[in-house]
C-alpha cells in the first residue's frame, strides 16, 4: 500500500508546461512595442503636471534645452526657477517696468546663452513644454523673455494626435 502511494506522488512531480499561449501573448506584445519604438535623437519626457496640447504636426524635437511651464511652476532643464500662482506668474518674478519680463528666466537664459556648452544656444533654439490650459498671456511672457535673452526660435512641444 505504501509503495503504491509513493508511485503516485512521483508521477505528479513533473509535468510539461504549455507555453504556446504565452508565446502568443509575447508575439502580440512584441509587435505593439516595435510599433511604438522610437528612433528619434531626443526623447522628450513630458513633465508630470503638464498636459501638452494635441497637434497633427509630425516633426520630432531636436536636441536643445527645454523650458517647462505648468500651472504651478516654471522649470528650466528640470530646475524650478519661478513659481506660478493660479496660472500666472507672481509679481515678485515680473519686472516692475515691463509686465512681460520674467526676471529669473532672463537671468538663467542669459547665463546659458553665454556658456559655450549649451545645446541650441548658437541657433537660438529652445523647446517649450507648456500646459494646454494656460492662457496666451502667460505663454507670451515666456516667449518675450526668451527672445530678449537670445532665444528667439521657440519651439512648442505638443503630443501627436488629430
Amino acid at each position: 500500500m505504501r509503495r503504491s502511494r509513493f508511485k503516485l506522488k512521483a508521477q505528479n512531480s513533473t509535468f510539461a508546461l504549455n507555453i504556446t499561449s504565452m508565446t502568443d501573448m509575447f508575439t502580440i506584445m512584441l509587435v505593439f512595442l516595435l510599433q511604438t519604438y522610437s528612433t528619434s535623437d531626443m526623447q522628450v519626457i513630458p513633465e508630470k503636471d503638464i498636459n501638452l496640447p494635441v497637434s497633427n504636426i509630425e516633426i520630432t524635437p531636436p536636441k536643445t534645452m527645454s523650458v517647462s511651464l505648468s500651472r504651478k511652476e516654471l522649470k528650466l532643464d528640470g530646475r524650478t526657477i519661478a513659481s506660478l500662482d493660479d496660472g500666472d506668474f507672481s509679481k515678485l518674478d515680473i519686472d516692475s517696468h515691463d509686465m512681460n519680463f520674467i526676471k529669473p528666466l532672463f537671468n538663467e537664459l542669459s547665463k546659458l546663452e553665454k556658456a559655450e556648452t549649451t545645446v541650441g544656444a548658437k541657433e537660438g533654439n529652445i523647446l517649450m513644454q507648456a500646459d494646454s490650459s494656460l492662457s496666451y498671456q502667460v505663454i507670451r511672457k515666456v516667449m518675450y523673455t526668451a527672445s530678449m535673452a537670445g532665444f528667439p526660435k521657440l519651439k512648442m512641444a505638443t503630443v501627436a494626435g488629430e
Binding site: 508565446t23 509575447f26 508575439t27 506584445m29 512584441l30 512595442l33 516595435l34 511604438t36 519604438y37 522610437s38 528619434s40 526623447q43 522628450v44 513630458p46 501638452l52 497637434s55 504636426i57 509630425e58 516633426i59 520630432t60 524635437p61 523647446l127 513644454q129 519651439k155 512648442m156 512641444a157 505638443t158 503630443v159 501627436a160
Partner: peptide
Amino acid sequence: MVKLVPVLLVSSAFVQVMMI
C-alpha cells in the same frame, strides 16, 4: 522574446512628443 520585450519596453515612446 523574454529578452526583447524589456529592451523594447525601455526604449518605447508611448506618448509621442512633437513640436511646432
